[in-house]
Amino acid sequence: MNIFRFAGDMTHLMSILILLLKIYATKSCAVGISLKTQELYALVFLTRYLDQFTDYVSLYNSVMKVVFIASSLAIVWCMRRHPLVRKSYDKDLDTFRHQYVLLACFVLALLLHEIFTFQEVFWAFSIYLEAVAILPQLVLLQRSGNVDNLTGQYVLFLGAYRGLYIINWIYRYFTEDHFTRWIACVSGLVQTALYADFFYYYYLSWKTNTKLKLPA
Protein backbone atom coordinates (compact mmCIF):
# COMPACT_ATOMS: atom_id res chain seq x y z
CA MET A 1 0.00 0.00 0.00
CA ASN A 2 1.37 3.40 -0.94
CA ILE A 3 1.24 6.59 1.08
CA PHE A 4 -1.37 8.19 -1.19
CA ARG A 5 -3.87 5.40 -0.68
CA PHE A 6 -3.26 5.39 3.04
CA ALA A 7 -3.70 9.17 3.25
CA GLY A 8 -6.83 8.79 1.10
CA ASP A 9 -8.29 6.22 3.47
CA MET A 10 -7.47 8.42 6.46
CA THR A 11 -9.12 11.54 5.00
CA HIS A 12 -12.12 9.38 4.08
CA LEU A 13 -12.32 8.13 7.65
CA MET A 14 -11.82 11.66 9.00
CA SER A 15 -14.73 12.98 6.93
CA ILE A 16 -17.06 10.33 8.37
CA LEU A 17 -15.84 10.76 11.94
CA ILE A 18 -16.05 14.56 11.79
CA LEU A 19 -19.66 14.26 10.72
CA LEU A 20 -20.50 11.62 13.30
CA LEU A 21 -18.82 13.40 16.22
CA LYS A 22 -20.31 16.78 15.34
CA ILE A 23 -23.81 15.40 14.92
CA TYR A 24 -23.40 13.60 18.22
CA ALA A 25 -21.85 16.54 20.07
CA THR A 26 -24.32 19.16 18.84
CA LYS A 27 -27.25 16.68 18.84
CA SER A 28 -28.23 18.24 15.56
CA CYS A 29 -27.91 17.77 11.85
CA ALA A 30 -29.56 21.10 11.03
CA VAL A 31 -26.46 22.18 9.18
CA GLY A 32 -27.37 20.90 5.76
CA ILE A 33 -26.56 17.22 6.09
CA SER A 34 -28.42 14.99 3.65
CA LEU A 35 -29.79 11.80 5.17
CA LYS A 36 -30.17 10.40 1.66
CA THR A 37 -26.45 10.81 0.95
CA GLN A 38 -25.61 9.18 4.28
CA GLU A 39 -27.93 6.25 3.56
CA LEU A 40 -26.42 5.82 0.11
CA TYR A 41 -22.91 5.75 1.62
CA ALA A 42 -23.97 3.15 4.19
CA LEU A 43 -25.38 1.08 1.33
CA VAL A 44 -22.12 1.57 -0.61
CA PHE A 45 -20.11 0.04 2.24
CA LEU A 46 -22.59 -2.76 2.91
CA THR A 47 -22.69 -3.89 -0.73
CA ARG A 48 -18.96 -3.44 -1.38
CA TYR A 49 -17.73 -5.35 1.63
CA LEU A 50 -19.75 -8.53 1.01
CA ASP A 51 -16.31 -10.08 0.55
CA GLN A 52 -15.38 -9.44 4.17
CA PHE A 53 -15.60 -13.11 5.08
CA THR A 54 -14.61 -14.66 1.75
CA ASP A 55 -11.58 -12.65 0.56
CA TYR A 56 -8.84 -11.73 2.98
CA VAL A 57 -6.51 -8.96 1.82
CA SER A 58 -4.94 -7.62 4.99
CA LEU A 59 -5.77 -6.96 8.63
CA TYR A 60 -5.83 -3.25 7.78
CA ASN A 61 -8.47 -3.81 5.08
CA SER A 62 -10.62 -6.05 7.27
CA VAL A 63 -10.59 -3.65 10.21
CA MET A 64 -11.24 -0.59 8.04
CA LYS A 65 -14.22 -2.31 6.40
CA VAL A 66 -15.81 -2.85 9.80
CA VAL A 67 -15.05 0.75 10.83
CA PHE A 68 -16.55 2.20 7.64
CA ILE A 69 -19.71 0.10 7.90
CA ALA A 70 -20.17 0.82 11.61
CA SER A 71 -19.51 4.58 11.41
CA SER A 72 -21.74 5.13 8.38
CA LEU A 73 -24.56 3.13 9.99
CA ALA A 74 -24.09 5.13 13.20
CA ILE A 75 -24.64 8.39 11.30
CA VAL A 76 -27.81 7.02 9.69
CA TRP A 77 -28.98 5.73 13.05
CA CYS A 78 -28.41 9.13 14.70
CA MET A 79 -30.28 10.99 11.96
CA ARG A 80 -33.20 8.57 11.94
CA ARG A 81 -33.56 7.47 15.54
CA HIS A 82 -31.92 9.96 17.89
CA PRO A 83 -34.83 12.07 19.20
CA LEU A 84 -33.03 15.44 19.02
CA VAL A 85 -31.04 14.85 15.86
CA ARG A 86 -34.12 13.50 14.09
CA LYS A 87 -36.06 16.66 14.91
CA SER A 88 -33.36 18.87 13.41
CA TYR A 89 -33.46 17.08 10.07
CA ASP A 90 -35.36 19.02 7.43
CA LYS A 91 -36.56 16.46 4.96
CA ASP A 92 -38.32 19.05 2.84
CA LEU A 93 -34.92 20.29 1.69
CA ASP A 94 -33.58 16.79 1.08
CA THR A 95 -35.53 16.21 -2.10
CA PHE A 96 -33.14 14.38 -4.40
CA ARG A 97 -34.83 11.39 -6.05
CA HIS A 98 -32.35 8.77 -4.96
CA GLN A 99 -34.57 5.85 -6.10
CA TYR A 100 -33.69 6.53 -9.73
CA VAL A 101 -30.01 6.71 -8.91
CA LEU A 102 -30.20 3.36 -7.09
CA LEU A 103 -32.00 1.77 -10.02
CA ALA A 104 -29.59 3.23 -12.60
CA CYS A 105 -26.55 2.04 -10.63
CA PHE A 106 -28.01 -1.44 -10.29
CA VAL A 107 -28.80 -1.73 -14.00
CA LEU A 108 -25.32 -0.43 -14.84
CA ALA A 109 -23.79 -3.00 -12.47
CA LEU A 110 -25.76 -5.77 -14.20
CA LEU A 111 -24.41 -4.61 -17.55
CA LEU A 112 -20.87 -3.59 -16.57
CA HIS A 113 -18.97 -5.76 -14.11
CA GLU A 114 -15.77 -7.75 -14.02
CA ILE A 115 -17.33 -11.16 -13.38
CA PHE A 116 -21.02 -12.04 -13.32
CA THR A 117 -21.35 -13.23 -9.74
CA PHE A 118 -23.47 -11.96 -6.86
CA GLN A 119 -20.52 -10.38 -5.06
CA GLU A 120 -18.97 -8.86 -8.17
CA VAL A 121 -22.21 -7.31 -9.41
CA PHE A 122 -22.77 -5.73 -5.99
CA TRP A 123 -19.14 -4.60 -5.88
CA ALA A 124 -19.65 -2.80 -9.21
CA PHE A 125 -22.97 -1.41 -7.91
CA SER A 126 -21.20 0.02 -4.85
CA ILE A 127 -18.55 1.67 -7.04
CA TYR A 128 -21.16 3.34 -9.27
CA LEU A 129 -23.29 4.33 -6.31
CA GLU A 130 -20.35 5.91 -4.48
CA ALA A 131 -19.63 8.04 -7.54
CA VAL A 132 -23.05 9.71 -7.34
CA ALA A 133 -23.94 9.34 -3.64
CA ILE A 134 -22.87 12.95 -2.92
CA LEU A 135 -25.58 14.32 -5.27
CA PRO A 136 -28.38 14.56 -2.63
CA GLN A 137 -25.90 16.43 -0.41
CA LEU A 138 -25.02 18.89 -3.18
CA VAL A 139 -28.70 19.41 -4.02
CA LEU A 140 -29.44 20.04 -0.34
CA LEU A 141 -26.62 22.60 -0.13
CA GLN A 142 -27.95 24.29 -3.21
CA ARG A 143 -31.47 24.48 -1.80
CA SER A 144 -30.47 25.63 1.68
CA GLY A 145 -27.99 28.06 0.16
CA ASN A 146 -25.48 28.08 2.98
CA VAL A 147 -22.46 26.00 3.78
CA ASP A 148 -21.35 26.06 7.39
CA ASN A 149 -18.01 24.92 8.81
CA LEU A 150 -19.09 21.36 9.47
CA THR A 151 -20.44 20.75 6.00
CA GLY A 152 -17.49 22.55 4.47
CA GLN A 153 -14.98 20.40 6.35
CA TYR A 154 -16.93 17.26 5.60
CA VAL A 155 -16.98 17.87 1.86
CA LEU A 156 -13.36 19.09 1.98
CA PHE A 157 -12.14 15.82 3.51
CA LEU A 158 -14.26 13.75 1.13
CA GLY A 159 -12.77 15.68 -1.78
CA ALA A 160 -9.25 15.13 -0.43
CA TYR A 161 -9.97 11.40 -0.23
CA ARG A 162 -11.03 11.32 -3.87
CA GLY A 163 -8.04 13.34 -5.02
CA LEU A 164 -5.59 11.13 -3.10
CA TYR A 165 -7.12 7.98 -4.53
CA ILE A 166 -6.56 9.26 -8.04
CA ILE A 167 -2.90 10.00 -7.24
CA ASN A 168 -2.74 6.48 -5.77
CA TRP A 169 -4.05 5.00 -9.03
CA ILE A 170 -1.54 6.98 -11.12
CA TYR A 171 1.22 5.80 -8.79
CA ARG A 172 0.06 2.17 -9.04
CA TYR A 173 -0.29 2.41 -12.80
CA PHE A 174 3.40 3.28 -13.08
CA THR A 175 4.72 0.98 -10.35
CA GLU A 176 2.65 -2.17 -10.91
CA ASP A 177 2.76 -4.42 -13.94
CA HIS A 178 -0.88 -5.23 -14.41
CA PHE A 179 -2.80 -2.37 -12.93
CA THR A 180 -6.07 -2.25 -14.86
CA ARG A 181 -9.21 -1.43 -13.00
CA TRP A 182 -11.33 0.56 -15.39
CA ILE A 183 -14.57 0.37 -13.42
CA ALA A 184 -13.07 1.84 -10.26
CA CYS A 185 -10.92 4.42 -12.04
CA VAL A 186 -13.56 5.79 -14.42
CA SER A 187 -16.18 5.92 -11.64
CA GLY A 188 -13.60 7.56 -9.38
CA LEU A 189 -12.94 10.23 -11.97
CA VAL A 190 -16.67 10.95 -12.32
CA GLN A 191 -16.99 11.22 -8.56
CA THR A 192 -14.00 13.55 -8.27
CA ALA A 193 -15.43 15.72 -11.05
CA LEU A 194 -18.61 16.19 -9.00
CA TYR A 195 -16.50 17.41 -6.08
CA ALA A 196 -14.35 19.59 -8.32
CA ASP A 197 -17.53 21.27 -9.51
CA PHE A 198 -18.63 21.87 -5.94
CA PHE A 199 -15.22 23.24 -4.95
CA TYR A 200 -15.24 25.62 -7.88
CA TYR A 201 -18.47 27.24 -6.66
CA TYR A 202 -17.28 27.04 -3.07
CA TYR A 203 -14.13 28.91 -4.08
CA LEU A 204 -16.11 31.51 -6.03
CA SER A 205 -18.41 32.20 -3.08
CA TRP A 206 -15.43 32.47 -0.75
CA LYS A 207 -13.57 34.80 -3.10
CA THR A 208 -16.52 37.12 -3.65
CA ASN A 209 -17.59 36.74 -0.03
CA THR A 210 -21.13 35.79 -0.99
CA LYS A 211 -23.37 32.91 -0.07
CA LEU A 212 -22.60 29.71 -1.85
CA LYS A 213 -24.96 29.24 -4.76
CA LEU A 214 -24.76 26.17 -6.92
CA PRO A 215 -26.23 26.37 -10.41
CA ALA A 216 -29.51 24.59 -11.02
Binding site: D9, D55, D177
Partner: peptide, 10 residues
Amino acid sequence: QDQPHSHDEL
Protein backbone atom coordinates in the same frame (compact mmCIF):
# COMPACT_ATOMS: atom_id res chain seq x y z
CA GLN B 1 0.19 -11.87 -10.30
CA ASP B 2 -2.69 -9.41 -10.33
CA GLN B 3 -6.11 -10.94 -10.40
CA PRO B 4 -8.67 -8.60 -11.96
CA HIS B 5 -11.32 -9.45 -9.41
CA SER B 6 -9.19 -9.10 -6.31
CA HIS B 7 -10.32 -5.85 -4.73
CA ASP B 8 -7.46 -4.73 -2.54
CA GLU B 9 -8.67 -1.15 -2.06
CA LEU B 10 -11.38 0.06 0.26
